[in-house]
Simulated scan of single mutants.
Amino acid sequence: MSVLCIVAHPDDEVLGVGGTLARHTAEGDDVHICILSDGVTSRYEDTDAADAEIERRRERAERAARILGATVSLHDFPDNRFDTAPLLDIVQTIEAEITEHNPDIVYTHHYGDLNVDHELACQATVTATRPLADSSVDRVLAFETLSATEWSVPKPDNAFQPTSFVNVNQHLDTKIDALSVYEAELRDSPHPRTIATVRQNTEVWGSKAGVPAAEPFEILREVRR
């Protein structure tokens, strides 16, 4: 089985779906992570400082992917400004990744996330994975990203309501190891993006699904061929 994970920024892949990706690779699946933006340039006015941090983030993304057993590619859409890029460009980038990796399953952000890059990454992914006759994609699932999904303005049409759960109990330590690579993106408690909160969150979702630890997903599309 081939798996493709489409995320906006480095660390989103681990926060949202790291345990599931680790489980896929442990079960022998091919996993590739597509990161659409560097995730840091919006924080810097100095170009040299931004370039140095971009390189550090690239190295961290590659290290995290190795821990998960995945490969990774990074693109250069403007951080926290996906709404300034033509949506078609994002769609075509994802389509190229799909052509290269021929995935059966695609994971991406939830459409209701507070972060505009997450929202548009989801929209572009759903567009790129439209169910054409020659498509390899059987399932498209949206994941929760702590400090983005739960912080969105609540509306009836954007709530994260998971319909699928993956037991990641045996792979939770791998998720935490990969997340620790992104130490600079973690925060002090109380905050959703701490090691303790990430671990506890999988346990809460697990208790709702009847397993020790779980990552939750909302099924955006499923085709049974």
Rank of each mutant, 00 (worst) to 15 (best):
D30C: 05
P103G: 05
V40Y: 00
D104W: 01
F77M: 04
S189W: 13
T129I: 02
T108C: 13
S135R: 12
D89T: 12
I90D: 05
L74P: 01
Q123G: 09
P103N: 03
H32K: 07
F82N: 04
D104K: 11
V17M: 15
A8E: 06
S73I: 04
A8M: 09
L21A: 06
R58N: 07
F143Y: 13
V223Q: 11
D113K: 06
P212C: 08
A61T: 03
V153N: 07
D113H: 02
T145W: 03
D76H: 13
A196W: 01
V166Q: 08
T47H: 13
N167Y: 04
D134Q: 12
F77I: 03
A64K: 06
V72L: 11
D46T: 08
H110Y: 10
T145D: 11
A142P: 05
A65Y: 02
L186Q: 09
E53W: 10
D117I: 03
I6K: 00
D38S: 01
R43M: 13
V106F: 04
L88R: 15
I6M: 02
E95K: 11
R57A: 02
K175N: 03
R193L: 06
D104I: 04
V198L: 12
V91F: 01
V211G: 02
V204R: 09
V198W: 00
I54Y: 00
S2E: 13
F143N: 01
D11N: 12
V223D: 13
S164F: 13
V168I: 15
V72G: 06
E97T: 09
Q161V: 15
V166F: 05
H75I: 02
H171M: 10
A133V: 13
A148W: 10
L186M: 12
P78L: 02
E53T: 14
R193T: 09
E144V: 05
T125E: 05
D12K: 06
A50N: 02
D51V: 04
S42K: 07
Q161N: 14
L179N: 09
D30L: 10
V31D: 11
S2A: 15
V17H: 00
N167H: 08
Y182D: 07
E215P: 00
Y182K: 09
A64L: 07
E100T: 15
P216Q: 10
D38H: 11
I90Q: 07
K208D: 03
